[in-house]
Write a protein that binds this DNA or RNA. Structure first.
Length: 327
DNA sequence: CCCGTACCTGACGA
DNA sequence: ATCGTCAGGTACG
């Protein structure tokens, strides 16, 4: 792997062919609850993967069945959480019974972490209440997993998500990477890397508007600046109790309670977080009207309890994907 | 605290 | 064609 405008990799006898990809295969049958890779990546919870065939969000579940998905994460001291360290390319593809991966490093642990492959789906489902809507959603997309994306990229992409369509949110993240991030090459191909907080903080509002971010442009720039300055980092929310963590995240510009819940759920392992977006609010109106308590905080408490508490975020993600596709 | 309003922009249907 | 509406909301008064 080569990283642009960086020193050449140190000589290493175990890496004579640095463009050679590592590869591996995970038996889906060994995962508790299996896997639906396309639903997991294209359900609007992660915007940090790409399909080289360019067919993301085309709604075709047949053709998407065995597509490759690619992302680049930074590994620092064995962690993918801190937006620092060397970029690592990760590619995955699912056929009927396997999840194949390729990477510039030995990446099985990264794949397992990003796609939450060690979550015990049957146990999670068993912990959610007996509820007709939940049963339908779980049945329809069984194998859909939450993701555990890098916090900074998640923070930025969900700031961009305000009043925006899923496919366009994804396009923005691609544009941010191509415009402000580095490029790594691996196996003869080049991969844009999501920008670091420093790289994004250096962008101007005008540059960001040119990428189509609209009124989100200053939100993204100022939030990147806060993270780059060291004043705060989304990862710092992890150690707090759930509602404190949500409050902590709202200090970033463009982050209200809903976006904060998305970061908690999709990046920081708060599986009880239920982002109250327009879809879930409609769902509450229709299926759980008694949970509408007016304020975000109180409605959040009520719906979290109704969806089973500890894993309410899992239920939310299934319902979100189900209603968004079946209507 | 709670409430109304302005906000970029492209895609889509009338 | 040109226009109104809408999209995983938030900041601000």
């Amino acid at each position: 792997m080569k990283v642009s405008h960086k020193e050449p990799q140190p000589k290493s006898d175990w890496l004579p062919e640095r463009d050679r990809m590592n590869a591996g295969r995970i038996d889906v049958a060994e995962l508790d609850g299996g896997l639906d890779l396309q639903a997991t990546i294209e359900s609007g919870q992660s915007y940090l993967w790409r399909r080289p065939d360019g067919e993301m969000y085309d709604g075709d579940e047949q053709r998407g069945g065995d597509a490759w998905y690619e992302t680049v994460v930074r590994i620092d001291d064995g962690s993918i959480r801190l937006d620092a360290g060397d970029p690592v390319v990760v590619r995955v593809r699912q056929d009927d019974s396997h999840l194949d991966w390729e990477s510039t490093t030995d990446a099985e642990w990264i794949v397992r972490s990003l796609l939450r492959l060690d979550d015990d789906l049957p146990a999670i489902r068993a912990a959610t209440p007996d509820d007709e809507l939940l049963e339908r959603a779980y049945d329809r997309y069984w194998g859909l997993r939450l993701v555990a994306d890098p916090p900074f990229g998640t923070l930025i992409s969900f700031i961009c998500s305000a009043q925006m369509r899923v496919s366009r949110i994804h396009g923005m993240q691609v544009a941010l990477a191509e415009t402000f991030g580095e490029t790594v090459t691996a196996d003869g191909r080049s991969y844009p890397v999501f920008p670091t907080p420093e790289q994004l903080a250096a962008a101007t509002e005008s540059q960001l508007r040119d990428l189509g971010l609209g009124y989100r442009a200053p939100y993204v720039q100022r939030t990147a600046e806060i993270v780059a300055s060291g004043d705060a980092h989304p990862e710092s929310a992890r150690d707090r109790p759930y509602e404190d963590a949500r409050e902590y995240l709202t200090q970033f510009v463009g982050v209200g309670e809903k976006v904060a819940d998305c970061v908690l759920l999709f990046a920081l392992d708060f599986l009880e977080a239920v982002p109250l977006d327009t879809w879930i609010r409609t769902t509450i109106e229709e299926y759980y009207p008694d949970c509408d308590r007016g304020s975000y905080a109180e409605t959040s408490r009520a719906i979290r309890q109704r969806l089973g508490g500890e894993y309410a975020g899992y239920a939310q993600t299934y319902v979100f994907h189900y209603l968004r596709n079946e209507e």
